[in-house]
């Protein structure tokens, strides 16, 4: 019971904090003090208290989508072993995990298309194609992890503790990090700060959301980002068989490290041209395949 509550606390309460960390790191790099670490919380709460403006073109899909997005991301979170074990993990849950996130993506795309704006349509289109590439890579990564650990559940996979002995892990870490950046529209691939560029992906899709709806979406994306950060962290340094509260604590530390990394990268990297993004994504896919082959080869399976 304790772990369940802990899981929920970590998962539901912590994510915006890490966004704040990233922003703080970026400000420091830019020589500013930056907003407070808890600023994302304030933003969300502020939005939730406002009223909504809906487009005349929008249908009920637009109104209910934010809730559904949040739902699917929360459910995906239940599968992530945040406290050493996940809440509802079972053999084969990696597939469900990916598909729940895909559900969230579909709903985001659909609500973006609902208002009939060309900007949001554009964003939706990009999200769809880039999302599909990253999903591909995620699956390739999971196959590799599955072959290494002979398991198909996130919990079991990250119970394995000899990550650093596997050369494949480094590749996987790199690709998952890429995916993290891509899926959460971070810097070299997308820019979360601009709102009016034709080069945006994620932010442009939520242009027409307002008030509580926007707040929920921001919250949901924070959750999603946290999930990916946790995943990336676990790939490099799995939980292993640590007892008690240690996995949860370590995880938070690892995630903190990763958010600092993201902040650093965002500060020093320039955004890649839109046309190049598929190439980057495919490159990360190839990297995963590389990892897969290495792990297969090591085990004498090919």
């Amino acid at each position: 019971m304790f772990f369940i509550i802990l899981h929920f606390i970590i998962f539901l309460a912590m994510p915006p904090f890490f966004i704040g960390v990233i922003n703080r790191v970026k400000s420091l790099f830019a020589g500013r003090r930056g907003p407070p670490l808890l600023q994302p919380y304030f933003d969300i709460i502020k939005l939730l208290r406002k009223g909504s403006v809906y487009s005349k073109s929008a249908s009920f899909i637009f109104k209910i989508a934010p809730m559904l997005i949040l739902t699917s991301i929360i459910c995906a979170g239940l599968l992530m072993p945040l406290t050493g074990d996940s809440l509802a993990g079972f053999s084969g849950d990696i597939i469900l995990f990916v598909y729940l996130l895909a559900l969230a993506r579909v709903l985001t795309i659909l609500q973006a298309m609902d208002v009939g704006s060309s900007f949001e349509g554009m964003g939706a289109s990009r999200e769809a194609i880039f999302g599909s590439f990253s999903e591909l890579t995620v699956f390739a990564g999971f196959v590799t992890l599955g072959i290494i650990t002979r398991s198909t559940s996130l919990t079991d996979i990250f119970h394995w503790g000899h990550a650093l002995k596997e050369p494949a892990t480094l590749f996987l870490f790199a690709t998952f990090f890429f995916i993290l950046l891509a899926e959460n529209s971070r810097m070299p691939l997308d820019d979360p700060n601009t709102h009016l560029e034709l080069t945006m992906i994620h932010e442009v899709m939520i242009l027409d959301n307002s008030g509580p709806g926007l707040g929920i979406i921001l919250y949901a994306s924070a959750l999603k980002m946290f999930l990916f950060m946790a995943l990336t962290a676990l790939v490099l340094l799995p939980n292993g068989d640590l007892p008690g509260l240690m996995p949860a604590g370590f995880l938070l530390l690892k995630v903190l490290g990763i958010s600092i990394m993201i902040g650093v990268i965002e500060s020093i990297a320039a955004r890649i041209r839109m046309i190049k993004i598929p190439q980057v994504l495919i490159a990360s896919f190839v990297l995963t395949v590389f990892a897969l082959l290495i792990s297969l080869f090591e085990r004498g399976m090919i």
């Binding site: 406002k50 009223g51 909504s52 403006v53 073109s57 027409d208």
Partner: peptide, 11 residues
């Protein structure tokens, strides 16, 4: 919460 209708944001 108040709800209102407007045109799609048109840049």
């Amino acid at each position: 919460k108040p709800e209102s209708l407007g045109v799609t944001w048109d840049c």
